[in-house]
Design a protein around this nucleic acid. Structure first.
Ligand SMILES: NC(=O)c1ccc[n+]([C@@H]2O[C@H](COP(=O)([O-])OP(=O)(O)OC[C@H]3O[C@@H](n4cnc5c(N)ncnc54)[C@H](O)[C@@H]3O)[C@@H](O)[C@H]2O)c1
Ligand SMILES: NC(=O)c1ccc[n+]([C@@H]2O[C@H](COP(=O)([O-])OP(=O)(O)OC[C@H]3O[C@@H](n4cnc5c(N)ncnc54)[C@H](O)[C@@H]3O)[C@@H](O)[C@H]2O)c1
Lengths: 220, 220
DNA sequence: CGCAAACCGTTACGTCAGTCACAGCAAGTA
DNA sequence: TACTTGCTGTGACTGACGTAACGGTTTGCG
């Protein structure tokens, strides 16, 4: 019973994934120990925040040596990852979808895109970026067979809600949505919106208003 | 004297761009007036928050008819956009860069990608997605000639800092960063990080933890 | 013309995340 | 062994943001 994770704030989780990335790089370079202020520097945060974030994963550091890199990585893996890994589906093999597919190809061992869906008949039943592409009509069937519970949505905005409904019907519990559209899904389904247009407008706006801002970088 | 914009919160600005998108669609459909609770429904927020956000743009609604759509759109344009529009540069014409280029092509009249930079000699001095592609060596020169102050960074992570330095040297004041790397830039430069990997890990994590979450969707 | 209703603008409140500060402790030193 | 040092873990503080509440105002109708 390793439960009792008492709800981690979203921002904290974002930072944890960042820390892990940094730690993996450090481990590659042979580092054995690291202090909170070192991690903080690399992540662009405050040392206290790093320590507080790490409290969530329940790994105790040593006041004299800091955190043991390898052990911390293992702890974070236990905390962040699903033991057997998670299969991910991609819907929409357009420009963005194909870029994502190429990027995630073999990169994340336990967060792998294993199947693609696209309504375009020219794409269905073919291999795209090493993944089998199916017609959305077969979604429920394929998703269940492959035990997919997370999906990336990269279709045009007008089709987004329809696809989301299909995904939910197919048993998906989390959606990474690239379409600029508000998805109506059941409470139990987690949706993360990633709106690039909004992000660009934000940059355009704040880049005009002097340096009066804080250091909240925010991912996704 | 329309100054006195007294620093808008980032989240508010994100929502404003969303409202504007919705309003444009409504205007297309011929809607003339709209209430805060209608906009709120469409945006997935609370009516009070919509009203509060709209305070920032300084457009007054009417208690009986709500907001006048066309006037509000105009006000938001005045508030959000730079009068003559803003030119944007894209650095890195890889899979992601090309997708972005295709997507923004002619879509945003006053936020246009006008130039591309890539270190690949096969791409330099050619047209990519309707944009001239230059070698990074000519960055400062080209950027100044085209008055570009905003850049999208889509190069591999190891090259990100170097490119950021070049961009800053070329006079850029805002960067939309897709690379999973922390950019060190002067205080006056605004950086918005958009980390897709982080977003996907977030979805994978929270999709496993029941429906205990709030309705903070967050863009970018 | 007076009234009722509905919504806007704004102020006040509550909640949550980020920061600070300090107690506790493990290692190194004399 | 006794002491010093510097970092961790954590409670308390602060500030920002979202939420709720309320007075003001404009319209429609009796
Ligand atoms: N740079 C970008 O590409 C970019 C930038 C910002 C936002 N977006 C958003 O990302 C999404 C995808 O962008 P894109 O450039 O890849 O678009 P795209 O037009 O290149 O690709 C869309 C793909 O989705 C498929 N599709 C359409 N309807 C479908 C359905 N009902 N079921 C399954 N597949 C369907 C199409 O066949 C096509 O292959 C869009 O919502 C867009 O607004 C993309
Ligand atoms: N789906 C995706 O494509 C995806 C997903 C998540 C993150 N990212 C991030 O986005 C960035 C770009 O991804 P991509 O898939 O387009 O990569 P890519 O390898 O397809 O393209 C990178 C491009 O950048 C160019 N480049 C390299 N160094 C450069 C330099 N110093 N100056 C100018 N140009 C240079 C290369 O020539 C290439 O054209 C990466 O940092 C990646 O981590 C991409």
């Amino acid at each position: 019973m390793k439960g009792k994770t008492k709800d981690v704030p979203q921002r904290t989780l974002e930072r944890l994934t960042l820390y892990r990335r940094l730690l993996n790089a450090l481990h590659q370079e042979g580092a054995r120990h690291i202090y909170s202020h070192e991690l903080a520097d690399m992540a662009g945060r405050m040392p206290a925040q790093v320590r507080r974030d790490l409290m969530a994963v329940g790994y105790a550091g040593n006041p004299a040596r800091g955190y043991e890199v390898e052990g911390l990585i293992k702890s974070m893996r236990r905390f962040l990852d699903k033991p057997g890994g998670q299969n991910v589906a991609l819907v929409g093999a357009g420009n963005l979808g194909k870029a994502l597919l190429a990027y995630f190809k073999g990169r994340r061992p336990n967060l792998r895109i294993v199947v693609v869906f696209d309504i375009d008949p020219n794409k269905a039943n073919r291999l795209i970026g090493g993944c089998r592409c199916y017609s959305p009509a077969r979604m429920a069937q394929v998703m269940k067979a492959r035990d997919v519970r997370v999906a990336v949505l990269a279709v045009p905005a007008p089709a987004a809600q329809e696809v989301a409904d299909q995904l939910v019907a197919a048993g998906v519990q989390g959606i990474l949505n690239f379409a600029p559209a508000l998805l109506r899904v059941p409470e139990s389904v987690y949706v993360e919106d990633l709106d690039m247009t909004m992000a660009l407008e934000k940059v355009a706006y704040f880049s005009r208003r002097g340096p009066a801002r804080k250091k909240v970088s925010r991912g996704a």
